[in-house]
Design a protein around this nucleic acid. Structure first.
Lengths: 252, 252
DNA sequence: CGCCGACTTGACCACCGTCAAACGGGGTGG
DNA sequence: CCACCCCGTTTGACGGTGGTCAAGTCGGCG
């Protein structure tokens, strides 16, 4: 490839980046426009259909990138097939890690997913040159730890009702962040008003995430409908009239 | 403080380090002896008695250091008092994180604990100058993520029997690493031979770690005794005649 | 229209949690 | 030295939450 075409590709990628919907939340936001040009030069875009495996457990390929659309589930399985979702990746989330070695989780698209994939060795080299980038990756790892630990409390100590409530609150909050709902002062809306929500996953995935069976998930949803906590529109779409009530249940 | 006394303190600390039992496993091992001298200069030692709180949840103090003896539990609690152990720190484990902000977990000594505490701002500055150190911290964060996710599978998907077996196997493996049991070729002993083990915690802590009640933990221990899987010597000391059998149960 | 997969609902029961009592070992004081 | 207490642990009896198995419903699609 000649220098020109390389440069052109980087330019094209960069303009693509400037219109990116997760621009202001993803790690690329940490870089200056000159640095971002370097990143864009080692980026390629990929799309995964629902159910498609992005990286299998024990796969040694290096996958590093940013989710720009859709939802990815990270799962671990026991030999007999029991399964646990250990993490979800939403748009703007960083995927992968700064070191080679076997994957410890199975990554799979649960909706249609779009990702910016970075060339791993070169991305690692970028993090060495730009500490702000490496710090960003580190901070995201810390957030992953916090999220995992938060979820350990849910899995180990919460009832089925609390588990479902926590899950819905989590989704609602992510939705609020993603759409950047802000009040008049510019702060994030944290009021407990009505929220419209599209469940990005099946009952089976919900069950695997909160440590229940699909039947129990379904029964709890039915109960929530009966209590007026939620109203389900078409199986996957629901409305939460009072997020505060749900939050109260989520914490016991 | 004069330069001399500062230097003397660093020298004293350094010689202390050279005899440290976790020397070859802790993060300080990543540094050259000159760099280690710098680290020693900002280190102070602390001891905590069993039950003593090292850092409370929502405490904003910065605690950064290495556990050199004993076991620390990291817990999260629900408003009504339900509690979950989200991590354990053993000798050589790194404690804390490279950023200010409120603690998201409650850290408490469960045995007598000794820690090397580093001055946080200066330690952060060290990590900026020595990338190998920052990389080490990052890798340890990744290990924390893996450990947390592994535990999520246990909490969400394993039976009481499997939970206890997994916990015991984990303890046995940590004990093997700590004592550096190696075979004739120098490799770690991974044979499933008899292991002697001292439980570092109460039944209540075990229950909070594997997401059960103390009664269920106790009953499972009794069952394991009956099956010859373990023999308990004095409540806290136990022998595992066949670690392989326990491993088989742990994975279902 | 009929099939198929996702979801819901129902009946049943097992695992584990709850509550309560008994056990045991170590420390203190008489 | 024994009696007593305290606390962690074990054991027992019982019940509820959530899992299992199975049938029924719904919605999309060929």
């Amino acid at each position: 490839m000649t220098m020109e075409t390389q440069f052109e590709r980087a330019e094209a990628a960069l303009s693509h980046c400037e219109q990116c919907s997760v621009r202001n939340r993803a790690i690329c936001n940490l870089l200056s426009s000159e640095e971002m040009r370097e990143l864009a030069a080692i980026t390629r875009h990929a799309t995964f259909e629902p159910g498609q495996v992005i990286l299998a457990e024990a796969d040694s390929r290096e996958i590093v990138g940013t989710v720009t659309a859709g939802v990815v589930k990270l799962t671990k399985a026991l030999p007999d097939g029991r399964q646990q979702i250990v993490g979800l990746l939403f748009p703007s989330d960083f995927m992968g890690r700064l070191r080679a070695g076997e994957s410890r989780v199975h990554a799979e698209a649960i909706t249609r997913v779009e990702v910016c994939l970075f060339n791993a060795p070169r991305f690692r080299e970028l993090t060495e040159r730009y500490p702000v980038l490496k710090n960003g990756i580190y901070e995201r790892a810390l957030n992953d730890i916090d999220a995992a630990r938060e979820w350990m409390v849910l899995l180990g100590r919460k009832t089925a009702e609390e588990k479902l409530a926590t899950f819905l609150v989590m989704l609602a909050e992510r939705a609020v962040i993603a759409t950047c709902r802000r009040d008049a002062t510019g702060a994030f809306m944290d009021e407990d008003g009505p929220v419209l929500l599209k469940l990005p996953m099946s009952r089976a995935d919900m069950a695997d995430h909160i440590g229940l069976t699909i039947e129990t998930v379904s029964r709890q949803i039915t109960r929530f409908k009966g209590n007026g906590l939620i109203s389900v529109i078409g199986g996957r779409d629901l409305q939460i009239p009072d997020l505060g009530r749900l939050r109260a249940i989520a914490e016991g």
